[in-house]
Amino acid sequence: MTEFAVCLPLFGLFLAAILEINHASMTAATMRAAAEKAGRMGVMDGVTTAEVETLARETAGAAVPNGNIRVHVKNAAAFDSGGDPSEIAVDSLPDIEVADARPRQLFVVRVEVTYADVSLIPPFLLKGPDGGPKVIYGQAVNRHE
Rank of each mutant, 00 (worst) to 15 (best):
G12R: 04
G12L: 14
G12W: 07
G12P: 06
L13R: 09
L13I: 15
L13V: 15
F14Q: 05
F14C: 10
A16F: 13
A16K: 13
A17T: 12
L19T: 10
L19F: 15
L19W: 09
L19S: 09
E20D: 06
E20C: 07
I21A: 13
I21F: 14
N22I: 07
N22F: 13
N22R: 04
H23P: 07
H23C: 05
S25F: 15
S25V: 15
M26V: 11
M26K: 13
M26E: 03
A28C: 06
A28I: 11
A28Y: 03
A28Q: 08
A29T: 13
A29E: 13
A29S: 15
M31Q: 04
R32H: 08
A34T: 03
A35I: 05
K37N: 09
A38I: 06
A38E: 06
G39R: 09
G39C: 07
G39Q: 09
R40T: 10
R40N: 10
M41F: 11
M41C: 06
M41V: 11
M41H: 08
G42R: 00
G42F: 01
V43A: 12
V43W: 11
M44F: 14
D45Y: 07
V47L: 06
T48V: 14
T48W: 06
T49A: 10
A50K: 15
A50Y: 04
A50F: 05
E51H: 14
V52F: 02
V52I: 05
V52M: 02
E53K: 15
L55P: 06
A56R: 01
A56W: 01
A56H: 01
T59H: 03
T59E: 04
A62Y: 11
A63M: 10
A63E: 02
P65F: 12
P65Y: 13
P65T: 05
G67Y: 09
I69N: 01
R70N: 09
V71M: 03
V71Q: 08
H72W: 08
H72G: 01
V73Y: 02
V73I: 01
V73M: 01
N75M: 00
A76K: 00
A76G: 02
A77T: 06
A78Q: 02
D80I: 13
D80M: 10
G82C: 07
G82Q: 05
G82A: 08
G83F: 01
G83M: 04
P85A: 06
P85C: 04
S86E: 14
S86K: 15
A89R: 10
V90K: 04
V90A: 03
D91A: 12
D91W: 05
L93F: 01
L93N: 08
P94M: 03
P94D: 00
D95E: 09
D95W: 00
E97I: 00
V98P: 02
D100N: 11
A101S: 02
A101C: 04
R102N: 08
R102D: 08
P103E: 02
P103W: 05
R104D: 14
Q105K: 06
L106K: 07
F107R: 00
V108H: 00
V108D: 00
V109H: 00
V109F: 01
V111A: 08
V111Q: 03
V111F: 05
E112L: 14
T114Q: 09
